[in-house]
Write a protein that binds this DNA or RNA. Structure first.
Lengths: 196, 196
DNA sequence: CACTACATGTAACTAGTTACATGATTCG
DNA sequence: CGAATCATGTAACTAGTTACATGTAGTG
């Protein structure tokens, strides 16, 4: 379900083709949701059947067309309803913690290296999230500008702060994880069996 | 793949039946991985075919048997190998952050309520993780005792500290998320359009 | 003309979810 | 005897992954 709402969320700002959306969500950027291209196209057709979005064909050359999707009023209503509904807690499934649970079974060096890579990833994620947060605060992303252009100026500050806060949260969680992993590395080293 | 390793991790401490494992992983406890019962039984058979575990039938009455699984040497080797291998970063997919991204589209009160429930969940998760951490530090869980009984006493402190650290990490992340959500609530309230 | 980007799809697969089905044993 | 617990499964489904397939249009 969530991918549908993620798609509604970006289409609400600007009409886009499947190709645009695929680039937006695939692997990519400092974003809170990701999905491969192969998931995007089928779900767009399902959403159109359900009346949440509407696809309009645009000519991009004599033989090439693209389908640009717009959110319908029904789609906006669905998005709003979902936004106000608390989700049930997701089952715990943390790859790194699962691995760390049994670090006592392998060489401290090997465990240390696994944590090292994890730290690098988390710090990179934190920096990217912060960078995106800064861009939002400076109104420096195309999608945000389109959103704001549809809203009253008096609300702009509020909107930007709320969105920026999401990326501050991403960064905070990533840094907490990195700090946890560093503490794990200290435990691994401190407790290595003494030579001699 | 991860569920397999989660299963190997607990079976390495103690031989268990599918039923035991299902109770262990289903919804349930202060654990880092969860899986429904319907996923457990098929995967156990696949793992036995792959030679990672071995199932032995035990009689539990004239007509009732249970299959108790033990990790094979091959299973231990696989677990150790996986433990020393860094996983590629998981694609971002955070339900709460996705919702929060568009909180400007709904009533502040509704968004506040969604965050409130999230905070309650995160704080509960943090407390459970800390409680489990304390139990580990006091050697107060059956599985940990079985693990330690198979290891040298000199290593016990190290093993316990490493495992306890995992649950400290869970708690820390949950608290970071809760604190983020509280800050979000402050933003929602502070910026509500002034009456009059 | 080759390369990149645009544009849309399908097939086969693994993982996880929800719900149902069946029977045995233990305990009050 | 009825209820809870033990014990093992299957079916149908949604979500996500990996890899492939096909053709168009713009750029150097």
């Amino acid at each position: 379900m969530s991918l549908q709402h993620a798609l509604l969320g970006v289409l609400e700002a600007r009409a886009m083709s499947g190709y645009d959306l695929a680039r937006f969500f695939d692997g990519s950027s400092g974003w809170v949701w990701s999905a491969p291209q192969s998931q995007i196209y089928p779900i767009l057709r399902r959403m159109e059947e359900a009346g949440l979005i509407q696809g309009d064909d645009e000519l991009r050359g004599p033989r090439l067309t693209r389908t640009v999707y717009t959110v319908t009023p029904k789609g906006v209503a669905e998005l709003r309803h979902w936004l106000g509904t608390a989700a049930k807690p997701t089952p715990v499934r943390d790859h790194m913690l699962l691995q760390a649970l049994h670090f006592d079974m392998i060489e401290p060096d090997a465990a240390h290296a696994v944590l090292e890579q994890f730290i690098t990833e988390q710090e990179k994620a934190a920096e990217e999230a912060d960078a995106h947060r800064d861009r939002l605060l400076q109104h420096d992303t195309p999608l945000l500008r389109e959103r704001l252009s549809q809203r009253e100026s008096a609300d702009h500050k509020r909107i930007v702060q709320l969105k920026a806060h999401v990326f501050a949260g991403m960064a905070a969680v990533a840094r907490t994880r990195a700090e946890w992993a560093r503490e794990g590395q200290r435990l691994l080293i401190a407790q290595e069996p003494e030579a001699d």
